[in-house]
Structures are given as structure tokens and as C-alpha cells.
Amino acid sequence: MLLAGFLATAGGDFADAASTTERIVINRFSGIAIEGFDPVAYFVEGRAETGLPQFEALEAGVVWRFRNEGNRASFLAHPEVYGPQFGGYDPTDVARGVAFAGNPRFWVIAGERLYLFGREASREAFAADPESFLKDAEARWPKLEQSLAQ
């Protein structure tokens, strides 16, 4: 099953606000993962939804936000399932050996996993053939991840 998310809101330049030296993409000003979007909502609501401060959780040294307690509990029970793959970095760039922060407004669920993309064109290319990108991304991610800060 393949679901694609679309740009929901206009805003500033996401790449400027996201850290590209962390193992999980966080906002360098707030310290919140994936700009505060609820990673579980992509699966249960089929769209990008902003999490709420009253439903925060600390996982892997990063603050995550959720829409409700149920989403929070699901994530904490299975962060490997609900968290964005490759730490939230764009898998098309990871496939090239580059860490480029994904934008939570550009997303795809493929193979029951969440992927975030830095550009709409990257999302579209990935959605057309996820397997070819994932083969290279999975091979390059361990070395790339080691080069990122703890």
C-alpha cells in the first residue's frame, strides 16, 4: 500500500529550520522531532497532523508530539514502526549517501513505513519506485548515520 501526502500548509524554508547533523531530524530551535507532526497520524488518519504539547514523549533523546494519548502510546510501544525511516532524512538523498532533512509535509507510507522527503519531486520519484531507492538507501544509511551527531 502506498499513500502520498501533499503540501498542507505554506511556510518558511523547512531545510533552514531542520538540523542535518542529528541522527533524527529535529528543529534546531525547538528540539522537537519532525516539526511537531504526529508520526502515528500518518498511519491512522492518512494525513500529516500537528501534535499537541500536552501529548509529548521523549524517545531516542528526542521530543515527539502526538494528537492524543492513544497515538503517543502506540509510538512508544513501537517507535521503529511509527517513526520516520532514516531518522526523517529524505530516502532519495540517503540513497546517494547524503543527509538531507525530510519535510513532514512531503511524505509516503511504503511497506508499512513512513518516509519524509525534502522536496516534492523526491517524493514523487520515490513513490513511483520505492524499492529501487530503498535498496541503495538501506545500504548507505549505516555509514551515513554514523557520521551524524549522537
Rank of each mutant, 00 (worst) to 15 (best):
A77I: 05
R65F: 09
P130S: 07
E145P: 05
A33Q: 10
L116K: 04
F75C: 10
P79T: 06
A110Y: 01
F55L: 13
I24G: 07
P91Q: 01
E112K: 01
A101H: 04
L3K: 09
F117S: 06
A41V: 12
A127P: 07
E138I: 15
T9E: 10
V63Q: 10
A33D: 02
L52C: 00
E45H: 11
A57Q: 13
E69M: 12
V98F: 11
F86A: 13
G61K: 15
E120N: 08
A17S: 12
G46H: 07
G83H: 02
L2F: 01
T21Q: 13
P91C: 05
D93R: 15
D16R: 08
E120V: 05
N27H: 05
G11F: 03
R47H: 01
A110E: 00
A73N: 12
G70H: 12
F100R: 13
F100Q: 09
Y42A: 10
E145H: 15
F133D: 03
P130C: 05
W64M: 11
N68Q: 04
L148W: 09
F117W: 02
A10S: 14
Y115G: 00
S30E: 07
A15M: 08
P91D: 03
H78A: 11
T9L: 07
F37V: 03
Q54C: 07
P142K: 08
E120K: 08
